[in-house]
Design a protein around this nucleic acid. Structure first.
Length: 256
DNA sequence: ATGGCCAGCATCGCTGGA
């Protein structure tokens, strides 16, 4: 099974990119973030035509998550229980007869002195508490999405420049570390990877061509799924296209 | 040295992203 995550930065604009990428990469399950579409406008029919069923949770202008899959999506659940939030950032579903998929769009945080940053840390604490409860219930669990956190210096093109900034501040990295302490494994780091492996590049400054990026999109695997993971890669092809999303998809292959 | 892009919503400028 191939499972992927991709922040598309507007599914309305990126639907042709997504359709092309689905044909090229042949994933079985894809988690999408920043769809920026109300549910009434979600392109479920277009995706159905190319072989994918959809579950989605969107809102106007901001946020929005979706899970698309070749097979059935069961037990679809919205949000983080016990964390009241109008922002559409979390969607869960069971695929492939028993793999629990948690699609997450972690708040950006804007800057470390902002209310949005405090919201990000509160959100991450609630997310951690919830996953701690979910893991014993689902031995095969994968939490994937745009985490808006670069976990380590090697995940940042210029760690000195980014030190203390939002996306790479110590409290955020500690919050990410606590997710790993639950037993989740960073799928990408299960394997040797090229240096300067990133998933997001600023639209400005020719950042993509200059390899000035961050690795902030992640696939976190429960121990049972980590054992079955045979590869995890970042696909740079969509980011190199005209009018790309600023994020690249990350894809994990699971032997099941 | 600075800031440089993009999407959406609603104009002819703003918010938010990361």
């Amino acid at each position: 099974m191939k499972i992927a995550t991709w922040n598309v930065n507007s599914l309305k604009v990126r639907l042709p990119h997504l359709a092309d990428w689905l044909r090229a990469a042949q994933p079985d399950v894809v988690c999408l973030q920043e769809t920026k579409l109300e549910d009434a406008n979600f392109p479920a029919d277009a995706l159905e035509e190319i072989g994918y069923r959809s579950a989605f949770s969107g809102q106007k202008t901001y946020n929005g998550v979706a899970i698309i899959a070749r097979g059935a999506l069961a037990h679809v659940a919205h949000g983080i229980p016990e964390f009241a939030d109008d922002q559409k950032r979390v969607l869960s579903a069971t695929v492939d007869g028993g793999t629990r998929v948690v699609c997450a769009y972690v708040p950006n945080g804007q800057s470390i002195d902002s209310d949005k940053y405090r919201y990000k840390l509160r959100w991450l604490a609630a997310f951690e508490r919830w996953l701690a409860a979910e893991l014993p219930r689902h031995s095969r669990l994968v939490a994937l999405g745009d985490f808006n956190i670069a976990p380590e210096p090697r995940d940042v093109h210029d760690p000195a420049l980014w030190e203390g900034q939002v996306l790479f501040s110590e409290p955020e990295r500690e919050a990410f570390g606590r997710l790993l302490e639950l037993g989740l494994k960073d799928g990408f780091r299960l394997f040797p990877q090229p240096e300067k492996s990133f998933t997001w590049w600023d639209y400005r400054m020719n950042a993509f061509k200059r390899k000035m990026g961050l690795r902030i999109d992640h696939i976190l695997l429960s121990p049972a799924l980590a054992e079955r993971c045979t590869a995890c890669t970042i696909d740079l092809a969509p980011r190199a296209r005209e009018r790309p999303s600023d994020h690249a998809p990350v894809i994990a292959e699971l032997d099941m």
